[in-house]
Structure formats: C-alpha cells, structure tokens
Design a protein around this nucleic acid. Structure first.
Length: 485
DNA sequence: TCTGGGGTCCTTAGCCGG
DNA sequence: TCTGCCGGCTAAGGACCC
C-alpha cells in the first residue's frame, strides 16, 4: 500500500454498446445489446438503457430478448472497438510510461512512475483531465478510480460508474471495504462466494474476523492468504506494463450439437490450423497441445499432450489434436470444440523442418480453398438456416455464396451514402442511413445482392482532420465476407 | 430457449529421478 | 539394496476475469 492514491484504474462505460451508440445516432438513449446473435449467443455488453430491463453481460441472448424485445441487437465489431481502444491507450501512455492494459476497455496506470501525481489533489486532477481527453478524442465516457493499490483503484472505478471519478483516501480502506460484499474482491466469483457464504462469511469485515487460518481451511492456501490480505486492504501487486503470453487457443460453439465423428474430426483440424495461425502471428511456438470438448450436457473435458520440443507446424498440431480426440467419447454430441497450445517458446523455428512444414501447410490451405466459412458459428444468415435442417453440412453450403449482412455492419450505398445494417433476412437487408456526427437517419430496404450496396469502414466518432478510423477493419476484410467464397 | 471466447492461475494426483 | 522424501514435470479440472 503506498502513501498516496497514485494508482489509476480506467474503465470505459458499457464500452461496446457505447461505441455503437456513438456511431449510430438513432441508437442514442435506446437499449443496445452487443453480443453473439446465434441461437447460443451471450451478451457481451448491454447499454445502460438495456440494463434497466435487467439485461447484463454473460446473459444468454435468448433471455435478453425476452427481457428487452425492443432493444437493438448488434454483432460485436472488435476491429472498430480496438481502434477506439488504441486512442484511449495512447492517452494513458501520455499520462505515464507504466500502463497495464487489462482488456480493450480497461487499464491500470501508475501515476507515481511518471511523477504525474504525488498526492490526492494532483492525482484527482490527472484523472479528471484524462476523462475530459477521452471524451474529446473518442466521444465516449470512462470512469476513473484512484487509490493506493490496484484492488482499491478498481473498486473505486466501479463505484464511479458511469461517467465519474472516485478517489479512495489512504487510511480509509478498511472502513470502506468492511460492509462490502466479499464478491467485490478480485478472485471471488460465484463458487468462492458460495463457499464463504456457507462458512457464514458474506462481507469483507467478516472475512477479516474469520482470520487467515480459517480462510485457508475454507478455500485453500493461495486463495485464503490472498483473500485475507485483500480484505484488510493490503495489495502490493505492481502495475506491470508487459505480460508474456502463456497460451494461445481457439474454440467454437456450434449452433447445433455435432454428432458425426468425421465432421468433429474435420472441425478439430480446422481449429488446429486457426490456432497455429494465431500462434505464428504472435511469434511463438509451443510444446503442449490441448484439446477441449464441451459435450451436449455442458460437461467440459480437456486432453493434452506434450511434445519433445516446441512446434508451430500446423501438421504437427493437427495430428496431435486428432490423436487427443481419439481418446474422447463424443456420443450424445458436442456443442464446443477447442484447440490450444501452451508451454510457449519465445521463438519460431526457422529451420528446414519448419520451412517444409509451411510448404505443406500452403498446399493444404489451397486444397481447402473451397471450404465453407459458414461453418463458423454465431453467424447470421446461413447459420440460422441451418437450424431447421439436418444441420450438419447440408443447406448451408448452398448459401455460402449469398452475401451476408451482420447487424451493425457499416455499409455504403452508391446513392444514399453511409449507413449501417439494421437487419437482414428473406433476401432483404434493411439499412439506416446516418453518420456519427449527424442526426438520426432514414431506413431503406434492399435486396441482399444489390450491387449498389457495399460493406464500408467505420467512420470516426469525433470530427478529426484524419478521415477514417485508423486500424479499423477495412474494406479488404469486409469485402471478403460478401464477395469471395 | 439456458449458458461465448480468450485468457490466467491454482489444486490435485501420478510418475520419475535423485 | 530398500525405503522415504522431495522436487519437477505432466495431465486434468475448476474458478475466475473481461
């Protein structure tokens, strides 16, 4: 615990939903829900308007639709959010060289490391200035927590939400934590919370009262000692700028459970290839291959195999994953498959083996060229159509060439200009024509194959000299969705 | 109509070598 | 030579986080 509240936690308010509202004037002040729109999707972010209906993140989308049937439902556009996040992180970087991003919308900043703030007054000033800068640059609001430790700074930003700033004065921590639920502490989720509740502990004060030994008995050594310290307000974890990646993984939940063993095997190999792509992109190779299978009843099992040395060879990973699959009983069906690599080495193999492997991989990719991208779950259109058929493979393939218009996608029409997809179905796509700085716009409907309608890049949320949002998912990738197979 | 995707860390158990 | 202990590694699962 340091003497001054110089650790800052920033949390953007309802980030994904707020970004969509900023981009789409007609959605401002309305309930907006961003998440997977397939039959097994969950809510990623709900706007504050949607939260009033009881919708919250991680809730099954079907439940959200029951609670807020009139909300706008949108597919997440990560490239767009990432471009905004980069602007925010840049502002944090100006505040201090020591910034620890936790996700696209959250970060810790060590103000002391920069000499930006030495006491409560200067820390508060830095926090308020940051909030104003974020609003000016992105048009969005963020909440700031300031305290002498990470844990308390995060609790402070939580209390500051939405669009506020809370500073916890050193010396007031224990009194502040005492009456709060144990669930506010990092690392206390539903399971640990229930464990503690059964032991008669629901507040931080009761945690302290119970004592370290009792907590270790209840929840284990590492957890127990950590919990006791946290409840006392002790947390000396430093702000860490760079974190080494420990594992890389890819997983898919299918709209319909998979039963066919051959199809399951094909999916595992596809996942293995995607995983290796990510592995290579991050400049790593890895030794341990992990297969994850979630069965029809939601029970999850993992099987892993450690190789003699690290690899980034797609054929090696594919074969290992297939071997692991052999040992798994899939009767009854599987809803999710995943492939991961851990035990990462900080290099890629650049020897002859690796080169031979990449040549093989290129051949394999060319062979799989006509593969159905439609297999990707959580997609609109083809995915929905697959729901009523015998599902596995069938009708979706025929629709692969039809253009898809995910809800929320930015588009441009030759005659009407910039807009976004409000919805699509039965061969039609509905577009609302409006831009971030403008007034709510008009809605028009087109045929899904209308040649005058094309996917477009997100527009900047705030008027700036530089035109399109940098780093955003561009026309290249948008075009791929609609034109090529 | 249940429950995403990408991670991290911890615990337990078995095995192996010293 | 046998036994016990310990550390390190591997495998599997669980909890948690955003």
């Amino acid at each position: 615990m340091r003497a001054a509240p110089t650790i800052l936690h920033l949390d953007m308010d309802a980030f994904f939903a707020a970004a969509e509202q900023a981009a789409k004037p007609s959605l401002r002040g309305k309930p907006v829900i961003v998440g997977g729109l397939g039959p097994r999707g969950v809510v990623a972010t709900a706007s504050y308007e949607a939260r009033r209906f009881g919708v919250h993140s991680a809730m099954p989308m079907a439940q959200a639709r029951r609670l807020a049937p009139n909300a706008a439902y949108l597919v997440p556009r990560f490239a767009f959010y990432r471009s905004i996040s980069e602007q925010v992180m840049r502002l944090l970087g100006e505040l201090s060289p020591l910034v620890e991003p936790l996700s696209l919308d959250e970060a810790f900043v060590d103000l002391e490391a920069a000499g930006t703030a030495r006491d409560a007054t200067s820390a508060r000033a830095a926090g308020e200035r940051l909030r104003a800068d974020i609003r000016a640059v992105t048009g969005l609001t963020g909440s700031v927590g300031l305290a002498g430790s990470k844990m308390l700074a995060k609790i402070a930003s939580e209390q500051a939400k939405p669009d506020g700033l809370v500073l916890i004065e050193p010396g007031t921590e224990r009194a502040l934590l005492g009456p709060l639920s144990v669930r506010i502490l990092p690392g206390v989720g539903p399971a640990t919370g229930e464990h503690l509740r059964r032991g008669g502990i629901t507040t931080c004060a009761e945690l302290v009262e119970a004592g370290e030994d009792e907590l270790v008995r209840l929840v284990g050594k590492a957890h127990g000692t950590g919990l006791y310290r946290m409840a006392l307000g002790h947390d000396d974890r430093p702000v860490v700028a760079e974190r080494d990646t420990k594992s890389v993984s890819v997983e898919d939940t299918f709209d319909v459970d998979l039963h066919d063993r051959v199809r399951i095997r094909v999916e595992v190999e596809r996942l293995a290839d995607r995983c290796v792509q990510r592995l290579r992109a991050s400049g790593h190779s890895g030794r341990t291959i992990v297969l994850k299978v979630r069965r029809y009843d939601f029970s999850t099992l993992t099987r892993s195999e450690t190789l003699r040395g690290p690899t980034d060879d797609p054929a090696v990973v594919r074969e290992a994953a297939a071997r692991l699959l052999e040992a798994v009983d899939t009767t009854g069906g599987v809803r999710l498959l995943g492939v991961g690599v851990s035990g990462l080495a900080d290099y890629t193999q650049e020897d002859l083996f690796a080169q031979a492997a990449s040549a093989r991989a290129a051949d394999a990719d060319a062979g799989a060229g006509q593969s159905q991208e439609d297999g990707a779950p959580g997609r609109e259109g083809a995915g929905e159509a697959a729901g009523d058929g015998p599902a596995e493979g069938g009708p979706a393939a025929a629709e692969a060439s039809v253009r898809q218009w995910p809800a929320g996608q930015d588009v441009r029409h030759v005659r009407y200009g910039a807009g976004w997809v409000q919805g699509s179905g039965v061969g039609r796509v509905t577009v609302r024509f409006e831009v971030p700085q403008g007034a709510p716009g008009r809605v028009r409907t087109f045929r899904v194959d209308d040649p005058d309608l094309v996917p477009a890049q997100p527009l900047p949320l705030v008027d700036q000299p530089s035109s399109p949002v940098d780093g955003a998912e561009g026309g290249a990738s948008g075009g791929r969705e609609s034109s090529s197979p």
